Lab assay of single mutants.
Amino acid sequence: SDFTIRIGDRTLHLKNVSEEILKILEELLRRGIDFEELRKIVEELIK
């Protein structure tokens, strides 16, 4: 499924993301992860 994360004025667009990855990202966001850290993790996950 497609997913968009907005943190402040920044946006991260994800396409064809599995439910498992979404759950991980949601947990990281709940813990207050930094946007740049989140972006790096996402890039690793979707390689």
Rank of each mutant, 00 (worst) to 15 (best):
24 I>C: 10
2 D>E: 07
42 V>M: 08
21 I>P: 03
19 E>F: 07
22 L>N: 04
27 E>L: 05
41 I>D: 05
12 L>P: 00
18 S>R: 02
32 G>Q: 11
16 N>Q: 05
21 I>K: 09
17 V>P: 10
35 F>G: 06
16 N>W: 02
29 L>S: 06
27 E>T: 07
47 K>H: 14
35 F>C: 05
12 L>F: 11
19 E>Y: 09
32 G>V: 04
42 V>E: 01
6 R>Q: 15
41 I>Y: 05
8 G>C: 02
10 R>H: 13
36 E>R: 04
14 L>Y: 04
44 E>V: 10
41 I>H: 09
39 R>F: 12
5 I>T: 00
16 N>K: 03
7 I>R: 00
7 I>E: 02
43 E>I: 08
33 I>W: 05
20 E>S: 06
23 K>L: 11
19 E>S: 12
5 I>F: 03
26 E>P: 04
2 D>K: 00
8 G>P: 01
27 E>Q: 08
8 G>E: 03
38 L>N: 03
20 E>C: 02
17 V>E: 01
38 L>C: 03
1 S>M: 14
43 E>K: 08
3 F>T: 08
1 S>R: 12
40 K>C: 10
32 G>E: 13
13 H>R: 06
31 R>E: 10
10 R>M: 13
22 L>W: 07
30 R>P: 01
35 F>I: 06
18 S>F: 01
40 K>G: 13
11 T>N: 04
14 L>Q: 00
36 E>A: 05
41 I>F: 08
9 D>L: 03
47 K>Y: 12
29 L>V: 11
41 I>E: 12
20 E>N: 09
19 E>N: 11
23 K>R: 10
6 R>A: 15
19 E>W: 07
12 L>N: 00
10 R>P: 00
7 I>G: 00
20 E>G: 08
16 N>M: 03
29 L>E: 04
8 G>Q: 03
26 E>F: 06
35 F>E: 05
24 I>M: 13
10 R>F: 13
43 E>Q: 08
47 K>T: 14
47 K>D: 11
6 R>W: 10
28 L>F: 07
4 T>F: 13
31 R>F: 06
41 I>P: 01
